[in-house]
Design a binder for these strands. Structure first.
Length: 424
RNA sequence: GGAGAGAUGACCGAGAGGCCGAAGGUGCUCGCCUGCUAAGCGAGUGUACGGAUUAAACCCGUACCGAGGGUUCGAAUCCCUCUCUCUCCGCCA
């Protein structure tokens, strides 16, 4: 959520940023709704003020044995007026809130202006495409041939976009989770958390998934709970409605969770393999930062995520998302795109974002400064990394002509010491 | 799932229709005192929204005693619903 004062005082700034994002939202409607809302507040609070003073008079009169009938009559009629205005206020606030909650964040000045992913800027490139003396296969062929990924049976058990990992496949997935957690805890100073995998509506609203993106979520029947689409939701909400101490910041959490996404609107897209699943594993990095240092923290977060691929020695590039491709809550986002030789594409494997105070305002995550004043923190997060997509990247980049898969050195201690997944 | 108890400020804890944004204590901040430390003395110490001002502070108003609704001229206090915590029983990984 944007600062209501910013919208009130500088609606043109908001309008410009919306335009850059290619968003059609009419800021003027919001400005009008805000004025209406404040109008009603002013009126109703004046009446409440009178109500309180009159009420005090009654108390004093009663105490001294006087007659308060006149005041009681006055209060009765005030009460009716207040009740009516309260209804009006509720409507006005609901109208205003429904508008302000769907306004996306303002992109940072350094974000390239553009319409879609074709306008994203490559920020860095690490390593090179590996050279094969045979035709590298996509991971789904490798996985089925080695009998470590079973898509058919997963479809039988549940449906499409699910995967049954078997033997070395399951082992590699688990190894990657543990390797990444250890890397971020031991080398990068994050604190590990293992949060709930379902959350309530307030949490989903706090990080911005609701109210706008409910169709992307799996909702439980009989409970107002949702399966998390990312660990960002439970972890960022750890400090919802809390006031942190300045000295505690920055706070850095790493969490492994499965993620559940409805993938509505992705019909027919990436239907093969591990790329786009309804359930996938992810290790997520979350930071709570001081406003002044949040962009340094973003660069650091990106390096922490990159470090995973560097350790695995897999080629990738980093792109800075343009205004048109930026997520709803984000001010600036870097995507890490891993090279997949079996598919001959770069594929997003991590998305690292600074939300500035957008989530913090919704979720009321604040901190107390040294001078006693209270301010909103900045929140950041990034995948470090998406596990399924890392598994597929390892498989495709480390495959051999005989169909076996080399185990990256850093992963071997996590994979019972084996050096390769043997051919069938 | 059954029975009971509870939820008040950073924390502990009073409060039982109007004098309560809320006693008292602890903690914290500032000042005094003290050779240092400890102790002692004094003052201060919630958040949000709206207004005023606008660089900010100060100021004015409103709301908030788990959440929502109700009774009443008036609710932290009475009633209802819900959520969460604790104890006992049952069940269970």
């Amino acid at each position: 959520m944007l600062d209501p004062k910013l919208i009130r005082d500088n609606p043109q700034i908001v309008a410009e940023s919306l335009k850059k994002r290619g968003n059609e939202f009419d800021v003027q409607r919001l400005v009008v709704a805000d004025e209406k809302r404040r109008d009603v507040i002013k009126t109703v609070e004046a009446l409440k003020s009178e109500k309180n003073t009159t009420s005090d008079q009654i108390a004093k009169l009663k105490k001294s044995g006087g007659d308060a009938q006149e005041q009681i009559e006055r209060l009765r009629s005030l009460g009716k007026q207040i009740e009516e205005l309260n209804r009006e206020l509720k409507t006005a606030e609901a109208e205003w809130e429904s508008l302000i909650m769907i306004v996306p964040n303002i992109p940072h000045q350094t974000v390239p202006v553009g319409g879609g992913d074709e306008d994203n800027e490559v920020a860095k490139v690490w390593g090179e495409k590996p050279v094969f003396d045979f035709q590298p296969l996509p991971h789904w062929d490798l996985g089925e041939r080695l009998d470590i990924l079973d898509f058919k049976r997963a479809a039988k058990i549940t449906g499409s976009r699910f995967t049954l990992y078997k033997s070395y496949g399951a082992l590699m997935e688990r190894a990657l989770i543990n390797f990444m957690l250890d890397l971020h805890v031991l080398r990068h100073g994050y604190t590990e958390v293992l949060p709930p995998f379902m959350v309530n509506r307030d949490s989903m609203t706090g990080t911005g998934q609701l109210p706008k993106f409910e169709e992307e979520l799996f909702k439980l029947q009989g409970f107002d709970y949702f399966l998390i689409p990312t660990a960002e939701v439970p972890v960022t909400n750890i400090y919802r409605e809390e006031i942190l101490k300045e000295a505690e910041l920055p706070i850095k959490f790493v969490a492994y969770t499965p993620c559940f996404r409805a993938e509505a609107g992705a019909h027919g897209k990436d239907t093969r393999g591990l790329t786009r699943q309804h359930q996938f594993n992810k290790v997520e990095l979350v930071k709570f930062s001081l406003p002044d240092t949040s962009y340094d923290e973003l660069e650091g977060l990106l390096l922490d995520a990159e470090d995973v691929l560097k350790s695995l020695k897999i080629h990738y590039r980093v792109s800075c998302l343009c205004t048109g491709d930026l997520g709803f809550s984000s001010s600036k986002t870097y995507d890490i795109e891993v090279w997949l030789p079996g598919q001959d594409v770069y594929r997003e494997i991590s998305s690292c974002s600074n939300f500035e105070d957008f989530q913090a305002r919704r979720a009321k995550i604040r901190y107390r400064k040294a001078n006693g004043k209270i301010d909103l923190v900045h929140t950041l997060n990034g995948s470090g990394l998406a596990i399924g997509r890392t598994t597929m990247a390892v498989m495709e980049n480390y495959q051999n002509a005989d169909g076996s898969i080399e185990v990256p050195e850093v992963l071997r201690p996590y994979m019972q010491g084996i050096t390769r997944i043997p051919p069938v």
